[in-house]
């Protein structure tokens, strides 16, 4: 008998290099994405320190000027430094993006797990409710809700999260239905594990990858959805500003020399969305011990 001489059949997998953090760190795009998100968030939330000018510092005589050494991203129609304005607006966009993503993922995961694990009857009820949310056109609901409830960003977050959770709930339910058929769930039941234990120890860790991707997708969609709303005139109102309403205010400048007013907030959204989705991919891989370099 030679039980120990049988090295595991996976080469190049050193005993070190384990664990969530190590796997995440090996994911170069995710690390770059994380760095970008952190720098961006720092600059936005500490805009009062970082920004070159004060917020809403108008120079009406100056008007819209293209990028220069003094104003790196130029100035807007009111002569405000555009970089400063983008940083301040980023506070709201990032806050909305992150809180919607986290909120809808948490709600969606909890309901998805219940729907998938609790059995037929409860599962059916939860899924019919989800369907109800899915068939309602989101923009119309948002517009109506915002008209009726006021346009504070808290309301926007709640309404966006109210739309976002349904997709995640469906995906999570599907995963749970597949996971609960796995033999390791049966093995835990035979060992006498409680349902809570099975959910916490076996289902959630195996769902973490799906949830991570869902968070990143949701950050992106809610920033974009908020922009769309602002663009349509239902989003935050001045003096509050977000990348979305900066876009909407600059919408008339397409193809004019002042086009940069459109491009820079758009670029800010694009960079954030890309960076966040890299982080999401990295998290998904980091949650899965089977992923190798």
């Amino acid at each position: 008998m030679n039980p120990t001489g049988t090295a595991a059949p996976v080469p190049g997998n050193k005993p070190s290099g384990r664990g969530f953090l190590r796997r995440f760190r090996r994911h170069r795009f995710a690390m770059a994405g994380l760095a970008i998100v952190l720098v961006l968030a720092f600059c936005c939330y500490f805009a009062n320190i970082v920004a070159p000018f004060a917020q809403n510092d108008q120079h009406l005589l100056l008007g819209a000027t293209p990028p220069s050494w003094r104003h790196l991203l130029g100035t807007d129609q009111l002569g405000r430094d555009y970089l400063t304005e983008i940083l301040y607006a980023g506070r709201l966009s990032l806050t909305i993006g992150l809180s919607v993503a986290v909120l809808s993922t948490v709600v969606g995961t909890v309901l998805g797990v219940i729907a998938g694990y609790a059995g037929r009857w409860i599962g059916e009820v939860v899924m019919r409710i989800t369907d109800l949310f899915l068939v309602v056109p989101p923009l119309a609901v948002l517009a109506v809700a915002l008209q009726g409830l006021g346009r504070s960003y808290l309301i926007i977050v709640l309404v966006l999260a109210g739309i976002g959770w349904t997709v995640i709930a469906r995906v999570v339910r599907g995963e749970v239905l597949a996971l609960r058929e796995r033999a390791y769930v049966d093995a835990a039941l035979v060992l006498g594990a409680s349902h809570l234990r099975i959910v916490l120890r076996h289902l959630l860790p195996n769902l973490a990858g799906v949830a991570a991707v869902s968070v990143s997708v949701n950050v992106a969609t809610s920033i974009i959805l908020e922009s769309t709303l602002s663009f349509l005139g239902f989003g935050v109102r001045p003096p509050q500003s977000s990348w979305g309403n900066m876009l909407s205010q600059a919408s008339g400048y397409v193809g004019t020399p002042q086009g940069y007013l459109l491009y820079f907030p758009g670029l800010a959204i694009l960079i954030t969305v890309l960076a966040v989705s890299f982080v999401g991919d990295g998290l998904r891989d980091a949650f899965d011990p089977r992923r190798k370099q």
């Binding site: 008998m1 030679n2 001489g5 049988t6 059949p9 996976v10 080469p11």
Partner: peptide, 9 residues
């Protein structure tokens, strides 16, 4: 005794 070898090694 032992296991089937890995095709890479």
């Amino acid at each position: 005794p032992g296991q089937l070898p890995n095709p890479h090694s």
